[in-house]
Amino acid sequence: MKSDPVTLLGLSLLVGLLAIAPARADPASCDVPAYLLLTESPLPKVEAAIKSGRPLDIVVVGSRSSSIATSEASAWPGRLQASLKERLKVPVNLSVELQVKKTAEEVATDIVKLVEGKKPALVIWQTGTYDAMRSVDPEDFRTAVGDGAVALQGAGADVILMNLQYSPRTESMISASPYLDNMRVVAQEHEVPLFDRFAIMRHWSDQGDFDLFGAGHGLDLAKRVHDCIGRVLAKFVVDAARLEPAQQN
């Protein structure tokens, strides 16, 4: 990446200021510091679709943490769709392929088949949790995620990877960090934007926006967290696709 020193300095100052600025403790604001949403990897297919005014087709391939058992509509994929519709002029179609209790390797082998019929411009692949629970070899995991991402790109879709949830209560039982690291590596290697759900949720937890630690907060907490994830992800997609304000409402 080449940047001239002045821009670099300006950018770093800006980012630094943004990071220092205190976050508001208003849960509904879904505040996320800008650096958690920075990505250099573009989304050309999404950009093209929106600029030409075609409908935006998205497929979410995810595990159980992409859903809420009793109220599917309030899970983050639904919230993402709603938020994108607000932001963009074009219609947004979104479908969800839940792959419950499957490792990344199992999903990767037929991920192209999963999305084939829908010809999506964008596939959001949420993965890692089940692999971490089964402590799959992180290298196998990395290969699988890489293969899956390449296959999707080959099939003509942009890809966004989404990593694990931040789950403090199971931290001592599920070791997340090898999987987080490897997803970051894959994202860099294949120039795929990574939506760092883990860091974002941890930020909310640290800021006191959401209490992710305690027991028995029930459905309401899940809905609010998913709503925020959907909204933040919509912003992430729009930013990564480099859409000028003109294309947005």
Binding site: Y130, S167, R169, T170, L212, A215, G216
Partner: peptide, 21 residues
């Protein structure tokens, strides 16, 4: 002992998947 305790007390739909552990 810890995991049994969490299994019995911690019921959070947000983490339904993680509870699969």
């Amino acid at each position: 002992a810890q995991i049994f305790y969490v299994a019995a007390r911690f019921d959070n739909p947000l983490y339904a998947e993680e509870m699969g552990i």
